[in-house]
Nucleic acid binder design. Sequence first.
DNA 1: ATAGCACGGTACAACGTTGTACCAATATGC
DNA 2: GCATATTGGTACAACGTTGTACCGTGCTAT
Lengths: 347, 347
Amino acid sequence: MSPTIHDVARAAGVSIKTVSNVVNDNPKVGPETRLRVHRIIEALGYRPNLSARGLRSGKSGVIGLAVPSLRENYFAELADSVIRAAKKHDLRVLIEQTDGDRQQEISILTGGRMRFIDGLLFSPAEIGQQDVDVLSGIEPIVLLGERIFGGPTDHVTMHNTSSAKAATEHLLDLGRRRIALIGASDSADDAASSANLRERGYHQALAEAGIEEDPRLVIRGGKWTRETGLDGVRHFISNGIVFDAIFALNDTLALGALRALVHAGLRVPEDVALIGFDNIDEGSFSIPTLTSVDPGRLEIAETAVDLLIERINEKGERSAPRTVKAAFSIIKRESTGFATDDAGPPQ
Amino acid sequence: MSPTIHDVARAAGVSIKTVSNVVNDNPKVGPETRLRVHRIIEALGYRPNLSARGLRSGKSGVIGLAVPSLRENYFAELADSVIRAAKKHDLRVLIEQTDGDRQQEISILTGGRMRFIDGLLFSPAEIGQQDVDVLSGIEPIVLLGERIFGGPTDHVTMHNTSSAKAATEHLLDLGRRRIALIGASDSADDAASSANLRERGYHQALAEAGIEEDPRLVIRGGKWTRETGLDGVRHFISNGIVFDAIFALNDTLALGALRALVHAGLRVPEDVALIGFDNIDEGSFSIPTLTSVDPGRLEIAETAVDLLIERINEKGERSAPRTVKAAFSIIKRESTGFATDDAGPPQ
DNA sequence: ATAGCACGGTACAACGTTGTACCAATATGC
DNA sequence: GCATATTGGTACAACGTTGTACCGTGCTAT
C-alpha cells in the first residue's frame, strides 16, 4: 500500500497534523521541522490521498465536461481548450459523452454518476427548455452552447444570430444571390436551438439586402454531420436547384458539402462559395481551405471554467445566473476566394 | 447540503448499514424494507458520495487517460473509444494532455496529480526506454502505443512493422516504384518508436520487391502534423525529386501532403498514390478519400481497458506484464485508386 | 423440547485527511 | 517580574461510506 500521512508522521516524529500542514503550506510549522518532513515525504514517496481529501473538504479538484462526442471535431477542440483552462487552476477534467441522446443527457444530470466532481460544464444537444428543472440539481453547472435560456444556471454562449448574419453578408458581399442554407432545423419549436438562432441571422441578412428568398434553398433536418452536408448538395443538384453559395451551419456540414461539390465538378469558390461555422482545425487544411465563423471557442472555454470556479467557491446564497457571449469573427479562406498561401496552423 | 446515508436511514427508520445494503444490492435485506428505503432515497434524492466510497473501498471508479492532445484527431477518436469501453464497465475517464512534452509526461507519472484514479492508460510520445523506471509507480498502468518495450507494465500496441510493410506493398501492387516516406524519425536511437518501427516495414517491402532505394525519398524529422506533410511534398517538388507514391506515417501527415499535392497540380492517385496510417474519420471525407492503415483503434481501446481492469482487481503478487497487438487492416480508398462512391461513415 | 440455522437487521470501526480547540514554551511589553 | 502575545506544535473529531462482527427472531430437524 502507498504510505499515508501517518507513516510520514511516525517516521518524522511529529503529529499527522504537522505533516498535513507541511503538505498544505500551512504557516504553523518551523523551518527545520518543515525540512525534515519534506525529506521524509520525498523518501517515502508519500502523496496525499485525494479521496480522503475530497471527503474531508467536500472538493475533489475535478470538474466534469459533458459533450455529445469527442469524435465531433468541434467538441474535441473544445475539450482541449477546457482541459487547458482547467489546468491553469489546477483542476482536472472528467469527460462524459452523451452521444447527443436525451436520455443520456438527463442521466448525467440526475444520475449522480458524476457525484464527486466539483462542478459540471454541460454542452446540451437534445434537452431543451422543457427540461429546465433537471438543471436545478445540487452541483454547480455552467451550460455551453444553446437550447436553454432563462434556466437556473450560468450560460456561456456565442453570438449565433449576429455571426450567422455576418457570414451570410460575407457571401452577399461576394455578389452571391442564391445562397443555400444547410443544417437548418426541421422544428421551429425550439427557438433557442443553435440551428434556429443561426437561421434567423441568415434570413435577416437576406432581408436587409432585399433578396427574395427561395425556400427550396434551405435544407432542413438531419444531424450536423458530413453526410447531411453531402446529401444536401446532392439534393440541390439532382433537383436542378440553382445556387451560387452555401452557408453550412457548422464546418462538418460544410466539409461534407465540399466533398459533394467537388464530386459534381463544381468549383469552389468560383461556382459556389462556401462558408461554415465553428472554425475547426480541419477547415484550414481542406482543399480548398474553408472560410468559417470562429465562435470564440477559446474564450468560451476559459470563461466557462472561470464561471464554474466562481460558483464552486460561492458560499451561501447562490447569486443570479449569468449569461456570457464570446466574441466572434469571420475567418476568410479559399472557399470564399481568399487566398491562404501558407496553410498555417490555427491559433 | 446533499442528503447522506444517515438522512435516509433516519427517515426510513433503519440503520445506515441497511441503507448501504440497499444501495449496493446486498442481499441481506427484506423486500419491504428494501422498497421503503428505495422510496426514501428517491424522495430525498440521495446519491452516494463517491469520495467517501472511494476512501473506504480504495477505488474511485475513475481511470485516467493521458494523451498528447485531443486536437490530434487520432487521440480524440482514441479517447472516444476509451470512454465508451470504460462506460461498459461503469468506469469514468479523466483525461490529461501531455502536449507530447517529456516533462509533462513524467510529471503525470510521478506527480500524483492523478492520485485518486484507479489506473492509468498512458500514451507516451516522448519518454522512452530510458524512463522505464518512472513507470514502476504504484498504480496500475497500461501503455498505449510504442516507445517502451520490456517495461514493467502491460502494453497494448499495433503491428507497426508488418502493417507498414503491407501499406508499402499496396503501393507496389499499383505499380509504383518511387515511393516516398514522410514522417520518418531523425534519430535511430529509439528503435522502438512508432516511426522507426513503421519505417522498417517500408524498407522490408521495398527490399523484398527488389527495389533499389533512393534515400532522398525519405523525409526525416518534424512532428506528425499537416505542416510536416505539406512541407515534405514541397521539398520534393522544389528539389525536383521524382515520386509516384507517398506513404505517410500517419493520416495527418498524409492530409497535409495531399493539400500540397493538389496545390501543385498533381493528381491523386493518377500522378501520386497516397496512403496514410491511423484511419482517422477525416480520411473518409477528404478529397480524394484517403487510403490508410487501420491499426485497430477500437480493439486497442477495449483491450487496454480490459487489461487495466484486470490489474486493478489483481490481488497480491503482480503477474508478469503482457503485450497485446491489435489486428490491422488496409482501408483502400480513392487516394490509391479505389472508388468509394458513397463517402459513408467509418465504423 | 431443544439445538441449529437462516434471515433480517444493527453497532462500530476504519479508510486518510483537515478544521477546531487547545497547550507548552519562548519572546515581548510595561 | 509578571501578565500577555506569539510561535510551533499536538489531540481529537468529523467528512460519508462499507466490512466485520454480532444479535434476535422464528422456523426446521431431530
